[in-house]
Design a protein around this nucleic acid. Structure first.
Lengths: 251, 251
DNA sequence: CTGGATCCACACAGATACTG
DNA sequence: CAGTATCTGTGTGGATCCAG
C-alpha cells in the first residue's frame, strides 16, 4: 500500500490513483448495480484474489469512493456501497463499457458473463428516447444467469433474477434491500404485466447490444430467442442500442 | 506481456484490458492533445520507465488505439498518434479528469504539472454555452509551463507555448504539424487579437477550474494574475468551470 | 540526439490455505 | 461470512546501455 503515485498534479492522474488499480473499476461496476457484500463481490468477480479484493475495498474506502457499512441487528451483515462521489462514476463506467464492447469479439475460452456485467451492458445501451410512453418488462437469460429489465416511461430499472422477482426493485436502481437481506413485499401492480417478455440469450448479447447485428440477424442466427412476435425483438433492439437508429434499409 | 485478462465477457473488462494498465490512460491523455514522438511522451511523463512506455505503446498499437507512424523523409521521425477509435476516448478522459480534479488538494511534494495535463484540464472545464459570440485568447503560465487557449464562437483551440505562437493551431486540435516538425506559416488574422489576455498561474489552477474558489477568491489569494481588468478573470472563470454557474450572491 | 533494449530489485498480483 | 496469511511469479520502477 505504498500508494504509488504518478507524480502529476492532474485530475486524470489523481483519478487513476484512486480507481485505476487493477480490478478497481470492475468492483465499482458491480457496486453501481447495488450495494454488495464481500461474498457477492467475490462471486461476481470469480477471478479476483481475495486479498486483492480486500485491499481494493480498503483503498476505495480511503479514497471516499466506497463505504463499508455494517447492517443493524439482527442481520449484522457487512455491506459495501458507493458514496455519492463514487456513484458519479456511473456515466464513466457506462461509457467505458460502450467503448470496450466494440472490441468484444467471440466469447474467449474460460470467459464468463455475470449478472452485473449484463445489467451494466443493458444500462449502457438504453435509449430513453425510444422508451417514451412505453411500459414493458424483459427477462434475459444468459445460460443460467438471469436478469430482468423494466422500461417505464423513459426510465429503466434493472435487477438480477427473473422478471417476477423484479418487484423488489424500488426507486432508481434497486437490489439494495435484497442485498441487505431484507425481504420486501412485492407491489402487486408491477407483477405480471401483460407486456412482459422473455429474451433468451443463447450466446453473448454483445453483437446485438453493440449494434453490430440487427435484431433480424440476431434472431436468424439463433443468438436470442424471444417470446411473442418477432416485432418485439425489434423493439428490444431499438431500446438497447449504441448510437442513433440505423437508416431504414431500402428494398 | 502475458496479456492478463479479467475473464469476463464484458465491455468494461475488455476496455480495461486495453487501456487499464498502468500509465496507459496518461499516454492517451497526452496523445489526445496531438501526435507525439517517443521523446515527447517521455518528457510529458517524466516518471514513466522507458521500458514501460515502449511496452504500453506496443500494446496500445496492437489494441488498435494507437498507430506508430514513420514520417516521410527527410524528417524520418517516429510519431505516435491515436486512431479514430482511440480518439473516441476523449470524452472519457475528460470526464475522468473532471472527477479526479475534485480530489486534487494541495500540490504534493514532487508533483508537477505538464503542458498536456493543463491543456486537458482546460478542455475538460470548457463551457461552450458561455463562449457564444466570444472571441478571446488566453495565455496561461504555470511556472515555466506555458499554454494557450483560443475561444472563438463556441469552440476551443488549445496548444502548448505562448499565445503568439498559437497560429500553428489549425482545425480541431492542433500541434499536429508542429509535432511533425513542419514549420507552418502563421495566418496573420489570428495573431495579436486585441482581446488577448495573459493569465499567470502562480499555483495550481485546479481550485479555480474545479469551481472550489470563485474568481474573486483566486484573485485575492494571488493564485492567478490576469492582465487587464478583474472582470476579465470572471469571464475566464465562467468559460472554464465545472458544472452550471453558481447562483448569484444576493447582497 | 532519437528510439528504444537490457538488466536488476522489488512491490504487487495471483493462487491457495487458513481463521475468528 | 468476511476476511487474513503465506508463498510464488510477474509487472513495475529505476538505472544504464546501445544502435541508427
Amino acid at each position: 500500500m505504498t500508494t504509488r503515485t504518478y507524480g502529476q498534479y492532474c485530475g486524470v492522474a489523481r483519478a487513476l490513483e484512486m480507481v485505476g488499480e487493477r480490478w478497481a473499476l470492475l468492483i465499482i461496476r458491480d457496486l453501481l448495480v447495488g450495494p454488495k457484500r464481500y461474498t457477492d463481490l467475490r462471486s461476481g468477480l470469480p477471478k479476483i484474489p481475495t486479498n486483492v479484493l480486500a485491499t481494493r475495498l480498503k483503498e476505495l474506502e480511503q479514497a471516499g469512493v466506497v463505504v463499508r457499512r455494517v447492517q443493524p441487528r439482527p442481520s449484522g451483515a457487512v455491506v459495501y456501497e458507493l458514496t455519492p462521489y463514487g456513484a458519479e462514476l456511473e456515466e464513466l463506467v457506462l461509457g467505458l463499457g460502450r467503448w470496450g464492447a466494440r472490441s468484444l469479439g467471440e466469447l474467449r475460452p474460460g470467459e464468463i458473463a455475470t449478472a452485473d456485467s449484463l445489467i451494466m451492458a443493458l444500462r449502457s445501451t438504453f435509449q430513453p428516447s425510444e422508451a417514451a410512453g412505453l411500459k414493458v418488462g424483459y427477462e434475459l437469460r444468459f445460460g443460467d444467469v438471469v436478469i430482468h429489465a423494466r422500461v417505464d416511461g423513459g426510465s429503466l430499472i434493472t435487477g438480477e433474477g427473473p422478471l417476477t422477482a423484479a418487484a423488489a426493485d424500488v426507486g432508481a436502481n434497486a437490489e439494495v434491500d435484497a442485498a441487505a437481506g431484507a425481504d420486501v413485499g412485492a407491489p402487486a401492480d408491477l407483477v405480471g404485466s401483460p407486456t412482459d417478455l422473455v429474451v433468451e440469450a443463447m450466446a453473448p448479447l454483445s453483437p446485438l447490444l453493440s449494434g453490430e447485428l440487427s435484431a433480424a440477424d440476431v434472431l436468424a442466427n439463433g443468438i436470442v430467442r424471444i417470446t411473442g412476435e418477432p416485432a418485439e425483438l425489434d423493439r428490444f433492439a431499438a431500446l438497447f442500442r449504441i448510437g442513433p437508429p440505423p437508416p431504414l434499409p431500402l428494398s
